[in-house]
Design a protein around this nucleic acid. Structure first.
Length: 301
DNA sequence: GGTAGACCTGCAGAC
DNA sequence: CACTACAGGTCTACC
């Protein structure tokens, strides 16, 4: 029935049960940096300690992991037990513009990434472009990540552990992956993760959003934007709204006509967040992701 | 409570 | 072809 099954060994599938999932949107919208799409349409990327291959056909997601046994990992990472339809309905009722985007970007979902990887990845994103962030992370993984598997002569590596990055000489990361000034930030943040108690970051899933955000911005080198990215993309805080230049501009256009500021001060940041929270409540982060992606396409055009 | 610079690097777009 | 602007921020030093 399709190519994916004929190649190599049999694939397992998971029933989406009527919930939408579009991999192009979900893996390509900029919330994660390690996914690539093959010529044959299959998405592949390293998540934690496995290489994952994914393809959606109809109401099934076909999957394979190397090494084997990653079913739970995929269900967790893609948040397949979420009721996305309910979330989309709720958002659509509140805002016709969002309703339109829910249709246009049907199947775009938020991920549940590893918080450590998310934090370190978004530290690399400061004043950087998405292709360069991705390239830098691949370089770091190949240099300092553990080997996950080898497939057709290509080696795949896990995201580096913070211990490893923290132990590097200052300045090394500036050159590797062309991280520039972000390299030293990365090392510092990795060190601060190591200095915290075991499981600190993961534990932020179990505290309220405001609490998690406050703990993250207390890390030197982490501001409100990176903290919100970690909250939204790895800690299940669906109300988190990362405010970058795109989001500030679209908020100005859509909600805050009198917002004159050219830069994002703390006060501006709060105003934009409040505008989202007021309109979209507990799902402000989902709304942000739809609007952000629309803006991203607009600016790429 | 707000603003300007600095921080690295690569690359698109103006001369 | 040398050159400048700027990219999914954060920190610091100043008003």
């Amino acid at each position: 029935m399709f190519y994916f099954v004929r190649r190599g060994r049999c694939l397992d599938s998971i029933d989406l049960k009527g919930q939408p999932l579009d991999l192009d949107l979900t893996l390509g919208c900029g919330q994660a940096f390690r996914w690539r799409k093959r010529e044959d349409g299959v998405w592949y990327g390293v998540v934690r300690d496995r290489l994952i291959e994914l393809q959606v056909e109809g109401n099934l997601v076909y999957w394979r992991t190397y090494p084997d046994g990653g079913r739970e990992l995929i269900v967790d990472y893609l948040r397949l037990t979420d009721d996305v339809n309910a979330a989309n309905r709720w958002l659509s009722e509140r805002d016709p513009h969002i309703a339109q985007l829910v249709e246009r970007f049907h199947g775009m979902r938020l991920l549940r990434q590893d918080p450590t990887e998310a934090l370190l990845s978004f530290v690399c994103s400061a004043a950087n472009s998405i292709p360069r962030i991705s390239a830098a992370i691949e370089v770091l993984a190949s240099l300092y990540g553990e080997l996950v598997c080898e497939k057709r002569g290509v080696c795949y590596y896990a995201f580096p552990k913070p211990e490893r990055l923290a132990a590097l000489e200052p300045g090394v990361l500036n050159v590797q992956g062309s991280l520039g000034f972000r390299g030293e930030n990365l090392r510092m943040v990795a060190q601060q993760i190591v200095d915290q108690s075991e499981g600190w970051l993961l534990g932020l899933r179990n505290v309220p959003y405001a609490c998690a955000h406050a703990e993250l911005v207390a890390v030197r080198g982490v501001g409100p934007k990176i903290a919100d990215c970690v909250c939204l993309f790895s800690l299940d805080k669906d109300e988190a709204v990362p405010v970058d230049t795109h989001v500030r501009q679209l908020a100005h256009r859509l909600f805050l006509p009198d917002l004159k500021a050219k830069s994002i001060t703390n006060a501006v940041y709060r105003r934009v967040v409040d505008a989202f929270r007021e309109r979209y409540g507990e799902l402000a982060g989902w709304a942000q992701q739809y609007l952000f992606y629309e803006d991203l396409l607009r600016s790429r055009a």
